[in-house]
Amino acid sequence: MAFSPPHTTLEAYIDIPFNIWLSIILIIAYGCAIRNRGLLLLIVLGCSTTIVAFDKTSTVGEMTKTMCLLPLGLGSVLAFLVASRSFQTRFLSAFTTYVNFAVYGNIGMMVATPADGTLRGMCSKVACAALFIWIVQQGRRAGWRTIFLHDDLFVFTSVSKSWIFAHAIYRFVLLTLPCFGSGRRHRLLEVYSLTLTFALSSTSNLPFEYCFGMADTLVVPAVAGWSAIATTFNLIPRDAMKTPNNIGTSADACLGAMSLAVAMFACYKIASAPRRGSRVVNR
Rank of each mutant, 00 (worst) to 15 (best):
G248I: 00
F208C: 02
N205D: 12
P244R: 00
T203A: 15
A253V: 09
V191W: 09
S259M: 08
S193V: 14
T176G: 03
L260D: 10
L189K: 03
T231M: 09
D216W: 14
P178K: 10
V223L: 15
N245W: 09
L218S: 08
Y170E: 14
G183C: 08
D216Y: 15
T176V: 05
T232I: 06
P207L: 14
V219E: 01
T197E: 11
F172I: 06
L188E: 06
F180R: 05
A199E: 03
A240D: 09
T195H: 11
P178W: 04
R171I: 11
L218A: 10
I229L: 15
N205Q: 13
S182D: 10
P244N: 01
L206Q: 15
P244T: 00
S182K: 06
L218M: 15
P237C: 10
C254A: 02
A224P: 01
T197C: 15
R185Q: 10
H167Q: 09
A166K: 13
P207N: 13
T249Q: 09
F233H: 03
C211T: 15
N246G: 04
D252A: 02
L189M: 11
I169H: 02
T176L: 11
D252V: 06
H186E: 14
V173R: 01
L196C: 04
N245S: 10
G213S: 11
G256E: 00
N205R: 14
F212N: 10
S193L: 11
V191Q: 02
S204K: 04
S201G: 13
E190I: 07
R171Q: 09
L177N: 12
A257V: 07
A240V: 12
T231A: 12
G225L: 04
A228D: 13
A222D: 12
V262L: 07
E190D: 12
G256I: 06
F180K: 02
P207V: 10
V262I: 08
C254E: 00
Y210C: 14
A263C: 04
A257E: 01
G225Q: 06
Y170F: 15
D239Q: 05
V220F: 15
I229F: 08
A228N: 12
A261E: 00
L218V: 07
L235C: 12
A240S: 12
L189D: 00
L175K: 03
G213N: 13
S182M: 04
C254L: 09
F180P: 05
L188A: 11
V262Q: 08
L235S: 05
V262G: 08
A224Q: 04
M241R: 08
